[in-house]
């Protein structure tokens, strides 16, 4: 469990997932985290279909030129307080796609990232850990109110 996470949560965490040009490796690991083996829904973590409902944005991929505006728009549509998790090496640093004419990443250049989940792709455990870290941020913000 991530450091600083309280024993009881103020709210269930709703997650929105956006693919900005990833290879699907991270995306299937995110779904795997939702499926019976890891079953994050038991903690109240749920994937939602609209950014307007979400607390956390999971973003994968190195952000292609076409997706740049859309990623920004999704980020703007999310209500505050919000946290952004960048899943996978390519979104964090570029990784194997370090050089390209059609990429504008890393994600940090486009929207502010709170938690970096490293791995290509990260294991579901790592993704869950990242979500828990984002939770800490949101809980702390909530507590300050």
């Amino acid at each position: 469990m991530a450091k600083g996470l309280p024993k009881s949560f103020k709210k269930a965490l709703w997650v929105y997932h956006c693919n900005s040009g990833s290879c699907n490796g991270c995306d299937i690991e995110i779904i795997a985290a939702l499926c019976p083996r890891y079953d994050v829904e038991r903690f109240g973590i749920k994937l939602v279909g609209s950014p307007r409902h979400a607390d956390v944005l999971l973003i994968t991929g190195p952000v292609t030129r076409q997706m740049e505006k859309r990623v920004k728009r999704i980020y703007d549509q999310m209500p505050d307080p919000k946290a952004v998790i960048c899943v996978g090496n390519c979104g964090n640093t570029g990784d194997v796609f370090y050089e390209s004419y059609n990429l504008v990443g890393p994600v940090n250049n486009v929207i502010p990232v709170d938690v970096h989940a490293i791995g290509c792709p990260p294991r579901p455990e790592a993704i869950i850990n990242a979500v828990a870290k984002a939770w800490v941020k949101l809980e702390t913000l909530e507590a300050k109110k």
Binding site: G21, C23, N24, T64, V96, E99, S100
Partner: peptide, 27 residues
Amino acid sequence: DIHRAIEWAGMRRNPIQIIYLAERICG
């Protein structure tokens, strides 16, 4: 929407490096 210019990047790397790039065309 997801054009990452993989083939273009591949033409600047050696075949062993490309194996790992090819692996990341699709997870």
